[in-house]
């Protein structure tokens, strides 16, 4: 499946901004099922200094600076990606979750160390007992890891209401757990927190979902903006994606942009400005079949 993604963020300022520095993670990643074909970052007003680097998690980061006064800034990322449809993993064949948990503590291979890091706290996700209380009914001793994780994904989808505007990026996950409301980012953080509290490595994934479903399938939530889900790590399977907002296992409708420990490692665009007064932000995402 080939998609054309257009992600535009525009800022309007009440007073001129004399200088701004930005960091963008807007280029889709290469994965076993995803192949980025073309990616372009268009900044207006145009900037002479667009450099790129790769961050700790392998995401491509672009840096740019605008040194001329401006009252409007727009950053568009236009990408074309190929997604290869694939069979969902054989969940029941995955190893027992508690065995994986114990093994990670001893595994010192580079892969094991990377997984270990994803069982620890991160800026937006802290491990906690209430998270275990909610998750544990899906994690009976010996149950196959991926099977248990998917059940948890579906339970979150069933128990939590998708209410745009009910939370902000600063809302902690224990509040989300209490109120049973949130948006995709909250659900991803929540399930990551539950998995890590149980000792299972999980990472945060940012990206997009395609908004025109095939006939007979429901429209996916989160289609008009950036989307977020998570990946759980399982020996022999690697990282497997789960989307608690839609209660599904992503296949060829999720375009992966970046990943990290949580949102703070993947924020698509962040920057520092001098001046500007009040500002208005508009974000537009279009995902179209090419």
């Amino acid at each position: 499946m080939r998609y054309l993604v257009r992600h535009t963020t525009s800022y309007e300022y009440s007073e001129p901004v004399s200088i701004c520095h930005n960091e963008a993670r807007l280029v889709p990643r290469q994965t076993p099922h995803q192949r980025p074909l073309v990616s372009r970052l268009v900044v207006e007003p145009s900037t002479p200094t667009l450099t790129s680097d790769t961050d700790y998690f392998g995401n491509v980061v672009h840096f740019f600076t605008l040194e001329e006064a401006h009252v409007r800034l727009s950053v568009s990322a236009i990408s074309e990606v190929d997604l290869e449809p694939f069979e969902p993993p054989a969940l029941l064949l995955s190893p027992a979750w508690d065995g994986v948990r114990d093994r990670i503590r001893r595994d010192r291979s580079p892969e094991g160390l990377g997984a270990l890091e994803l069982t620890l706290d991160s800026p937006h996700v802290r491990r906690a007992d209430p998270l275990i209380d909610y998750a544990s009914q899906s994690f009976a001793p010996g149950r196959p890891l991926l099977d248990a994780v998917f059940e948890l994904t579906r339970r979150i989808h069933a128990d939590f209401a998708y209410v745009p505007g009910s939370t902000t990026i600063a809302t902690p996950i224990d509040r989300v757990l209490e109120s049973r409301r949130g948006v995709c980012q909250d659900f991803a953080h929540l399930q990551i927190g539950m998995l890590r509290s149980l000792g299972i490595p999980a990472r945060y994934v940012s990206g997009y979902v395609h908004n025109t479903p095939p006939p007979g399938r429901p429209c996916l939530v989160g289609a008009d903006a950036s989307h977020a889900w998570l990946s759980a790590w399982c020996p022999g399977f690697g990282f497997v994606d789960f989307d608690p907002t839609n209660g599904s296992i992503p296949s060829d409708e999720h375009v992966t942009l970046a990943w990290g420990r949580d949102f703070s490692d993947t924020s698509p665009l962040r920057g520092v400005i001098l001046g500007g007064g009040q500002h208005l932000v508009r974000v537009g995402v279009e995902v179209a079949r090419a």
Partner: peptide, 27 residues
């Protein structure tokens, strides 16, 4: 290369959860 972690001399989680470990410096 993080060889000291591979060789198990220092538990990796001590590094990963230290607030002073700057992932931006890796590489």
């Amino acid at each position: 290369a993080q060889k000291i972690l591979d060789d198990g001399l220092i538990p990796a989680d001590l590094i990963y959860r230290a607030g002073s470990f700057r992932r931006e410096m890796v590489g």
